[in-house]
Write a protein that binds this DNA or RNA. Structure first.
Lengths: 145, 145
DNA sequence: TATTGTTATACTCTATAACTATA
DNA sequence: TATAGTTATAGAGTATAACAATA
């Protein structure tokens, strides 16, 4: 009945959820004024990771509806960060690909967003950083299931 | 060029940020149809944690502007989850407090939101859960600085 | 005159439904 | 007929600016 045993899945679940949401919120708050929104940046990162994709595939990937993705993609096109190409064989399809500027934007934005967390991590001990590195892998595994 | 040493603050920062945002997003996706929004729930949790507060204080707490908080609070009042009272001495102030229903809503929502993560944690080894428990504390410390 | 809260209004991101073009 | 993408329109949630009440 040690309800407070921190390693019971139930107890840990509640505690971990709170800490994860709190830090995620803090991370989000580091976004600069002229920065891309989370949704816009996620599209760039998705294309970089998985290669050029159709708007439909991007929408499914980001868990939003196709019309919303059309808007996001058009914004990115206007910003010159992605380009639309037509599919070779199936003319219904649009393929969204990164431009040079888009690729560069990913690097710049990542650097800026990492800065806050990197600074905080520098204040930890090597052991604590190792714990977070291990946790990072576990969380990625959980999230991908 | 061990750019990939996972315990360098810089490398870990990028990797951890990605995993944190991914899991936070997944957690958010567990929100049910009839569930409160994150902003609404945060208000309830904030009042429970810190006691009755003015809309202004809540707005500052949640990093949104006062007019937005007025809207959120009014929605919660309509739902019967909070109540507005007037301040004893300063009649400009409104004090927002939890109702019984609001207190109950916190418990129910927490239980529902914890369910998904708890299930995932049950599939880990005790050692892995300990790692996440340790990480949870570290992340809370980082977020509160 | 300063402060607190609210109202009026607009912008962003998302959604559903209807439309166009292609298979 | 079915599918991919888009356009049209609407609903949250947030913001800024202007206003009312109180200190």
């Amino acid at each position: 009945m040690s309800e407070s045993d921190p390693c019971t899945p139930g107890t840990l679940g509640g505690q971990l959820r709170v800490s994860l949401q709190r830090i995620a919120r803090k991370l989000r708050a580091q976004r600069g004024e002229a920065d891309l929104t989370d949704g816009q940046f996620a599209v760039l990162a998705s294309i970089k990771r998985h290669g050029p994709m159709t708007p439909g595939a991007l929408a499914e990937h980001e868990n939003i509806r196709p019309p919303s993705m059309t808007r996001t993609v058009n914004t990115l096109v206007d910003l010159g960060l992605v380009a639309k190409a037509s599919h070779e064989s199936d003319k219904r399809l649009v393929v969204v690909e990164l431009t040079e500027a888009g690729l560069n934007e990913i690097a710049v934005t990542r650097r800026r967003r990492d800065a806050w967390l990197t600074k905080k991590l520098g204040q930890l001990t090597p052991e604590e950083r190792q714990t977070l590195a291990d946790a990072s892998e576990l969380l990625t595994r959980i999230a991908s299931q």
